[in-house]
Simulated assay, not measured.
Amino acid sequence: MQASNLEFCLQLAKGIARQFGPNCEVVVHDLASNDPETSIVAIENGHVSGRRVGDGPSHVVLEALRDGGAVPEDRLSYLTKSEDGKILKSSTIYLRDDDGKAIGIFAINYDITLMLAMEEALKGFTATELPQAEPEHISRNVADLLDELIEQSVRLVGKPVALMNKEDKVKAIQFLNDTGAFLITKSGYKVCKYFGISKYTLYSYIDEAKSAGEK
């Protein structure tokens, strides 16, 4: 690998490792010498995998050298495992010369072992008894609450008010009645205006919804 390319890789490796902290290992392999046993020419946070400069080989290095001029595709965001059992999220990027031949590898290995354990713990903590399509909204006042309930009734019907027929509106009114929306002061006026119905029609729909629910 040319000195200028190596210098850039060293600078980039140091910057990435500093940015993402001690759990982020960055490794530079030099393939130009065709000696996989000492391919690592730079490594930041080597404690992640337990390696150091001069170590090797790794299966990705052997893969790159196996077919001579043939260069494998870059591998991004895949899982690997260190000898001491750490689970790593890895990316392997092949460095090529002007002829497309692999001359180096720039690899990133991030230790996600603790994150995976935390993920499992969080799943147990956030799990609910009943499945929900989305979290319930917490309104700041009753006006906002009524607006949210009206929006929910529209989502329940599955079409905008302009396209609703009588049965659709009865279904929406039934939802609002069941959720206690009409306990909110002046809710009837707002619901009538939103659905384009009279107060008499609203009461009629409520009665119709109650009758349907009692069947």
Rank of each mutant, 00 (worst) to 15 (best):
N177M: 13
T179H: 09
A3T: 07
D30A: 01
L114F: 10
H47S: 09
R18S: 15
R155V: 04
A212L: 15
A209H: 14
R52C: 08
K215G: 07
T179G: 02
V154D: 09
P131R: 13
H29C: 02
G180E: 00
G85L: 02
E7Q: 05
N45R: 13
S204K: 13
R18V: 15
I138K: 07
K169A: 06
P135M: 01
L6C: 14
Y203G: 14
D147C: 09
L31G: 02
K171A: 11
F20P: 10
V27R: 09
F182E: 00
D207E: 15
I138C: 13
T128K: 14
R96E: 06
G188F: 10
E208R: 14
K186F: 11
M115F: 13
E134L: 15
S82D: 03
F125E: 14
D144E: 06
D147A: 13
I87E: 08
R18C: 13
L12V: 06
G196S: 03
D84P: 07
Q174W: 09
D111G: 03
R140Y: 15
V61P: 02
V61S: 00
E167H: 06
L88Y: 00
C9R: 09
L183D: 13
P22Q: 05
E73L: 06
G104F: 03
C192F: 01
D74R: 06
D111M: 08
D97P: 04
P131V: 04
G104Q: 02
A117D: 14
Y194T: 12
S91V: 00
E134D: 15
I40E: 04
N34R: 12
D168H: 08
G21C: 00
D168I: 00
I112A: 01
A42W: 07
H29R: 11
D55L: 01
I43W: 01
P135V: 02
N34G: 15
D55V: 02
F195C: 01
L62V: 05
C192A: 00
A121N: 05
Q2A: 13
P131M: 03
V60N: 12
Y205C: 01
T185V: 07
F106P: 12
D111Y: 08
E134S: 14
K193A: 08
E7P: 05
V60T: 08
A127F: 12
K166D: 10
S198C: 02
K215T: 11
Q152K: 11
C24R: 04
Q152I: 15
R18K: 11
L95G: 07
L10R: 12
Y110T: 11
G85F: 05
I138M: 13
Y200W: 11
F8Y: 13
V48W: 12
C24V: 04
K193T: 07
Y200K: 14
D147I: 09
P160T: 14
L202A: 01
A143I: 15
F8W: 14
K86W: 06
L149V: 05
N45E: 04
T113L: 02
V48D: 01
L156C: 03
A17H: 04
V161Y: 08
N34K: 12
K123Q: 09
V60I: 14
N141G: 01
L202S: 03
E7A: 11
V41N: 02
A133G: 05
S139P: 07
T128H: 10
N141M: 03
G46M: 03
